[in-house]
Amino acid sequence: MSVTALETLHLLERSYAFDAVAPPVADSEAMRWVGTSLSIAGVSLLVGEGELQEIIETPPVTIIPGTKPWVLGVAAFKGGLLPILSGDVLFRQRPYSGRARDYCMVINRPGMCCGITLSAIQCDLKFPIEQRDMSHPVDADFARFCLGGFKHEGRFLAVLDIEKLVADEDVSDAAASEIFSSKGNSDD
C-alpha cells in the first residue's frame, strides 16, 4: 500500500514544523524615556527629548552691561540675537575661570530663548521609564532644577527639567542686582 499524496504532504508539513525555527517574539511596547546626555559645570545631566532646540558651538558674544554675572552676552544666531548664559556661573552661583566652553545648548521656550554653555557632550540615550529614580541624591546646586534621573554605566544622570529652569524667577530676570558690577561678564 503506497503512501498517498495527501499523506506525503502531511508528513512533509510535520517535518518542516519540527525543524522550523521559532518565530521571533516581538518586544513589548515598553515606554522609553529618550534624552541627550551632556554636562554642565562638570555635572552629568540628561535633557529630555524635545526640550533642546539645538547644540551649537559657542559663538562670539557681545557683552551686555547691567546684566547678571551668568549672562555672557548676545550672539548672532540664524539671523537673530541669542543670549548666551554661562552654565557654570548660573548653577554654581560663583565666578568661573576654567577652560573655555566650546559648546552650548539652545533652549527655545515661550518667554525664554537662550544658549547655556556646556562642559561636555556625550550622546542620545534611551531608558525604560520605570527605571527612573526619583529619590537619588543630586548635586545641591542642580537639585532644585532636576526631576529624578537614571543610572547609566555606574553613574547617576540627573534629568534637568527645562520647565523648572525657565520658571525660576532668578533665571528669568537677567538684570543685574546691586551686588554685581555692570561692566559685563566673561566666561574665560
Binding site: 541627550t36 533642546l52 539645538e54 547644540i55 551649537i56 558651538e57 566650546d102 559648546y103 557632550i121 556625550q122 550622546c123 542620545d124
Partner: peptide, 11 residues
C-alpha cells in the same frame, strides 16, 4: 565631539 553634536542636532 563635533560629530556627536551633529548627531544630536540631526535627531
Amino acid at each position: 565631539t563635533k560629530i556627536s553634536v551633529v548627531a544630536i542636532n540631526t535627531r
